[in-house]
Write a protein that binds this DNA or RNA. Structure first.
Lengths: 224, 224
DNA sequence: GTCTATAACGGGATAGAC
DNA sequence: GTCTATCCCGTTATAGAC
């Protein structure tokens, strides 16, 4: 074995999926980039979708595991109190920002990849990741509900969805290697805090129900 | 002419682009749906990208025109003062929400279409719409800068990008015809206000420069 | 204006030699 | 494990009959 064909294929696929999108990347493009024969990928993975599964398992699944781990940490750190909305959202956001930085060393512009996967998952991606995404968001919704007892469940769902959208926009426009000095993500802490500064106030402004104990800044619904 | 082949083609293309994405929609699928021959589209439009241009011109461009018109209205309504951030953002997001409702009558699930176009525009879409998107956002950035003189230009750019992300999230999850009672957009006013309630606090929390006259709720950057 | 037929190509998958 | 050769499909685009 030269360097392990299997790994070379996953590396190339990961990079090309990120760059051009899953559905726009042909197996031939992947094998060309990996300098491997077309048949090798069928030998090692089976069908195209199985290769996609291998890539998502290595690249996206760990992000969700880390999200849950950070959430548990936040809960522990808060003792018996419910953790702050900020700390919950930090657990949700941070793994992606870390990944953007970390994967640059592998030459993978993961940001746009995640943007696409989160925003408009291709049917194949949906099949593979759907259950996992659902489980993670269910867990975060539960914890957010505990920290915001006066906010209706639907409103929290809605707000978390917005968080995902913000990540998508953030990723989709993250310039490769910070070119154009555009969206600098080189300092993970700064980037996370900056996003939280924008998002947390939106959660605080969520409408509260009768026994409101929440905060200021109530919103007015327009006249009916 | 049966009903005008040209229109039938655009209608079908619009619907399929929205449903499956631009790059995933073949001309054959379009002509099948339009019950038109494959060659007809070449006769009427030329190449595939020219058809795409026709669809975007009819569906997305009017949204940007309306954005600018609403922005002008907001400026007029504020007399000589700079308009509020809320009114500027309302002008930005309202046309999309209106379109989601309006196009349902044509059977077009425009929401997912816009989500894809805004989040990760295909290269072809980028070629066609890039300049227009840039012009519109430049205009809004200018006005936001006037209304938030103490906020750095980069931070406003950053925040507007987040707004786009919020729209993307909103679109991506808007269920067809409000099925699953999920994200109800039947009342445009309510939907717009709800989004603004989440977004405006984030703008208010943007960092201000020395001569700050802005507001409360300052953020801390983490230690370097 | 609308059709059929076909050119020219790229895609995923597999059989079978090495 | 890895290669070549090939099958069969769907794609855009065009030529030419009607």
């Amino acid at each position: 074995m030269v360097i392990d064909t299997r790994i070379r294929i996953i590396d190339a696929a990961e990079r090309l999926f990120a760059e051009h999108g899953v559905e726009q990347t042909s197996m031939r493009a992947i094998t060309r980039a990996a300098e491997v024969n077309v048949a090798a990928v069928h030998y090692h993975f089976g069908a195209r979708e199985d290769l996609l599964r291998a890539v998502l398992d290595r690249t996206v699944s760990p992000l969700n595991e880390r999200r849950l781990a950070l959430l548990d940490q936040a809960i522990d750190a808060a003792d018996d109190d419910p953790p702050s909305v900020r700390s919950i959202l930090a657990a949700f956001i941070r793994p992606d920002i870390e990944a953007i930085e970390g994967l640059r060393d592998r030459g993978v512009e993961i940001a746009q990849f995640l943007g696409r996967v989160y925003a408009a998952p291709a049917p194949t991606v949906e099949r593979i990741m759907g259950a996992q995404f659902h489980a993670v968001s269910a867990r975060f919704l539960k914890e957010l509900g505990r920290s915001l007892p006066q906010v209706a469940h639907d409103d929290i769902t809605y707000a978390l969805r917005i968080v995902v959208g913000v990540l998508v926009a953030f990723f989709a426009n993250a310039t490769p290697r910070g070119r154009r000095g555009d969206l600098d993500t080189t300092d993970v802490d700064v980037t996370v805090e900056r996003l939280l500064d924008f998002l947390v106030p939106g959660f605080v402004a969520l409408p509260t129900r009768p026994g409101q104990r929440q905060l200021v800044g109530r919103r007015k619904r327009p006249p009916p």
